[in-house]
Amino acid sequence: MTVSQPAAAAIGGGIRPIRARLTATLLVFGGVAAGACLVAPLVGSTSISLSRAFDRSVPFADNVDAQIFFLARLPRVLAGALAGAALASVGVVLQALLRNPLASPYTLGVSAGSALGAMLAISFGASVAFGPLSPVPLASLAGACAAAALVYALATKPGRPMSTSVLLLAGVTLNSFFSALILFVQYMADFTETYRTIRWLMGDLDVGGVTPLLGVLPLIAAGWAMLAPLPSSLNLLSVGTDAAATRGVDVARTQRMAFIGAALTTAGAVALAGPIGFVGIVVPHLVRLMIGVDHRVVLPASALLGAAFLVGCDLISRTILAPVEVPVGIVTAMLGGPFFLWLLVRKA
């Protein structure tokens, strides 16, 4: 999950040309992410072997190892990788956009909006489905988009740059407001529905196949496509909006792209796996401590480390108390928190 010291030193420094840093970053963090995705499906209640899983001489129908690897575990690992990469990359973008190291994917009010949507679907037994999306993910997606749209409308005026302080305050306030609504509906709902809602809030990567993945992939891909050209502008925005404007950044447009891209990506991740916390805060900071703060390396590195981090946390969540599964959202915070504090204290 972490990068060894010599590797970190080779990437960091800030004095090496950006090309070399980017190449090293992609190699090291890409290797970590790929390794996590390959190893995680091998571990579980039944142990399987990688060579047998990929053994083409045995027909797939008779190859138990291949079935467990590809059908049971790989979709779950890929869901973890996708959600982890999405949440960590959005964390990076919002921390730069809001110039606030405490910003997370949920600062936009998206988590509470999606939770409200999911809970309404659970409580009222909604049965509307759309393509590969079943009712609860669909409702959480709608809630996330509605919340983000509301925050966006509050923080923008035509022809002016976005007010990032209004954005921050509106997001936080909306989160509280939606949380109150959630509590209210839970109070009115019966125990089973309340338990299902609470379980959903803890996050779950047991997606049961590749279909849910395909359902949210277009959304996350569209979000990433909007975020991918931004890192250089985010560097300047994090120095200051005037500084960015006088260096040729179209501030209003960059803020709009960052916001919409972040909202789409988060909505996709939450619809897939629930509002898993902490990945969006801890992973970007971890990356900055290791390789510096230039967003052109921090964004891809965070996406890759976020994928590895969530896959690793999910691995722990399904093995540590096996056969009981600990919800992955609990693991990310219980594991990530102390580790991050240790890193913070050691660095300072």
Partner: peptide, 21 residues
């Protein structure tokens, strides 16, 4: 500008090279 307060801990070289944007 009168004052510059970056939100993240950029190195001097990184700050200077942002001028190439």
């Amino acid at each position: 500008p009168q004052e510059t307060h970056p939100a993240f801990d950029y190195t001097v070289l990184e700050m200077v090279l942002m001028g190439r944007h």
